[in-house]
Nucleic acid binder design. Sequence first.
DNA 1: CGGCATCCATTTTGATACTG
DNA 2: CAGTATCAAAATGGATGCCG
Lengths: 226, 226
Amino acid sequence: MEQRTYNQYCATARTLDLVGDRWTLLLIRELLTGPKRFGDLQHSLRGLGTGLLAARMKHLEREGLVRKVTLPPPARTPAYALTPAGEGLEPVVLALARWGLTWAMDEPREQEAFHPGWAVLGLKACFDAEAAAGLRALYEFRVEEEVFHARVDDGAVETVHGPAQHPDVVITIGREAFRDLAASRSTLAEAINGGAASASGDQQALRRLHHLFRLPAPRTRPARTS
Amino acid sequence: MEQRTYNQYCATARTLDLVGDRWTLLLIRELLTGPKRFGDLQHSLRGLGTGLLAARMKHLEREGLVRKVTLPPPARTPAYALTPAGEGLEPVVLALARWGLTWAMDEPREQEAFHPGWAVLGLKACFDAEAAAGLRALYEFRVEEEVFHARVDDGAVETVHGPAQHPDVVITIGREAFRDLAASRSTLAEAINGGAASASGDQQALRRLHHLFRLPAPRTRPARTS
DNA sequence: CGGCATCCATTTTGATACTG
DNA sequence: CAGTATCAAAATGGATGCCG
């Protein structure tokens, strides 16, 4: 099976040769919030069969973007994690997310899936490093069964699947509310006032939240009906 | 003909629904350095047939990323240009380019195509806005038949196909030398000393060039042979 | 559960011939 | 040139079964 290539000595084309196949960048997106097991990946990506998933992971592993790991106790099950080269794709995924937040996140469509981890990554895409200069804060998001945390540390941020150690703020929020929040279709204040969310902990850190993650104003593309 | 979609309410996935198909991001890449005609596009993208090219352009037009324009006199021929939404994809393409420059630009392979415009975009991907604060300069690159210019203006840069009006610096450079330069496999000074390039104009602006475009140090991915 | 193989219907693509 | 039409080759989606 010969690898298909654009055959261009161009950095963009060579990158797309490696990660431009269908599903590949979404797999990277999943791994950007922490290691995931085979089944986790398949569960997040409806429509991707086990055969193609196995092939994609093998390809990413062979190309040095992903490596197999064994989850720490008590899990002790095999999983996939990004290598440094794989993590280097974060700016690509975040750039795609920023474009989508600006130009493509209208109403959710019937039958469209939603996972809170995607919204967390969407928030990260809007992180404002300048606004975070000199700040340190640990935010935990609890969206029904799933928990994430965002660690802000002087212009940098890390968003990972799982609970935080000693969060400054804990935000408990419903699934739909979180979805709308991360798509700039509502604000955290609205969600709290409407009873869809609650927040506890450091009130000052909470108030800073919407300065740290500045969602873009949605725009509409000129549609061509013809 | 139903459009294939990931069916995820996720900014990254929705963006990939629009531009994730094969060739699409490379078409955007081509248009990022100015409007191009149908034939120009096909010529740059060996392997992309006329049928698929027409389908892709129609799709991009319908989705509001590209619009048909008529080139100004004396050309007066039809061409394709990016809309604001299409230009918004520049950060995506540049992020792909930066990753490729860091992790994927080893030796050119036999039979791999190369167009100077790709290298110009590669340079742009490495533009250092901070180093350019307060500066203004117009650089023209002449690579055999093709000419490009880079207009630096206080932290911003624009790289466009075509000659500049009153360039501060004109760099005339051979095809291979330019290719190696943009892949961080050699420096402009080396190319000039080796006779593969010459530069005229404002010497101070010329010396600033390699501060403005900081190519990343190439790294190698851990290959897995098994 | 993780992972791979197989079979098959459907899409996507690549290449080329053809038309205004 | 710009773009359609056509057909063969490849990639994908989905179901299923196997093995450790």
